[in-house]
């Protein structure tokens, strides 16, 4: 007999939820508490809004070699790998442009009129000097790892909680699952409608991860116009995409997290080739206008609502 245990909290500027099926409820709750603690310690290391974080110190020591922690080394290594794999579309070095767009403080504290006009000012992440343990950021480079850390954390926490039993880890919409609920063949995960309507889809997920990237959240309007948090590294400006959201499915949450953004940023005529370049990636594209479409693997996971059932 297994017990369903659940924990919700806020971290990394978003709501988080862990669901697990454990052999005993008390042990399951302790595991979820430990997972929350682990999530908060990751936030303390990688947040650009915490002055004492390792990332803030890294950004402060421009031009000087800095020895980094094992976690930071892993994330920086992954980030560089994904920077190259996406042809530079994933670029954590866009922080100066993100701040110029007005996102220079936590989202809850954004001043809509803080956006400053001007040319792109960011360096390319490929110029990071990195030997696996020591990093040196060249002049002009400042890093935001917000585009990869949530997915990476979802993988870590899901692996940690999988020792307890089947688990679903939801970090603000980046979802990783391990195992399936007792008596079920899959987890059900809904896809939010950017237009605030009913769910666009309900997916059956047995293992792996789902992440969504969209321009409809974390956006603000001020004197300089409407801004959002997805910076196109080619222009240094919030992306002007024909898509409002991309849902990415992949065995690893960190890959789903990164590629959901990049597919949204990519030009329409090159999008299919970009998706094909990432083995195991399936996507749902939600256009600004028109009907959502998906790749074969994504469609195969969609629960068909023609029978008027309720997905639970």
């Amino acid at each position: 007999m297994t017990e369903r245990v659940e924990r919700t909290f806020r971290a990394m500027g978003t709501s988080m939820r862990f669901i697990a099926y454990a052999a005993d409820a008390a042990g399951g709750q302790r595991a979820l508490e430990a997972a929350e603690e682990r999530t908060r310690s990751i936030e303390a290391r990688f947040s650009r809004f915490i002055a004492s974080s390792e990332l803030s110190r890294l950004n402060a020591f421009v031009g000087s070699p800095v020895a980094v922690s094992r976690d930071m080394a892993e994330v920086l290594g992954l980030a560089l790998e994904q920077h190259h794999a996406t042809g530079g579309l994933f670029d954590p070095a866009i922080l100066p442009d993100l701040e110029r767009a007005g996102y220079d403080r936590t989202f809850d504290e954004i001043d809509p009129d803080a956006a400053r006009p001007g040319p792109s000012a960011h360096a390319t992440f490929a110029d990071l000097e990195w030997d696996g343990r020591t990093v040196r950021t060249p002049h002009g480079m400042r890093i935001d790892l917000g585009g990869i850390v949530k997915g990476w954390t979802a993988d870590r926490i899901a692996d940690q909680l999988a020792r307890v039993g089947p688990v679903l880890v939801d970090l603000g919409g980046d979802i990783a699952v391990r195992g399936t609920p007792p008596g079920e063949s899959a987890w059900t995960v809904a896809v939010e409608d950017p237009a605030a309507g009913p769910a666009l889809a309900a997916l059956r997920v047995t293992t792996g991860a789902i992440a969504t990237s969209g321009t409809y959240r974390r956006r603000w309007t001020g004197a300089a116009g409407t801004m959002h948090h997805l910076i196109d590294p080619r222009t240094g400006r919030p992306a002007a995409s024909d898509l409002v959201a991309v849902v990415a499915l992949h065995p690893r949450a960190v890959i789903a997290d990164v590629w959901a953004k990049c597919v949204l940023l990519e030009r329409p005529q090159r999008r299919a080739a970009l998706i094909a370049a990432c083995p195991g990636l399936e996507v749902i594209l939600v256009p600004v206008s028109g009907i959502p479409v998906g790749t074969g693997g994504a469609l195969a996971r969609c629960i068909d609502g023609s029978a008027n059932g309720v997905a639970a």
Binding site: V189, P198, A199, I284
Partner: peptide, 20 residues
């Protein structure tokens, strides 16, 4: 790419992926 099938009604509390 193919259009998605009609979505079912989703019960409250179902985990939801969303733009972050």
């Amino acid at each position: 790419f193919q259009p998605l099938p009609p979505a079912p009604a989703v019960a409250a509390g179902v985990p939801t992926t969303r733009g972050s």
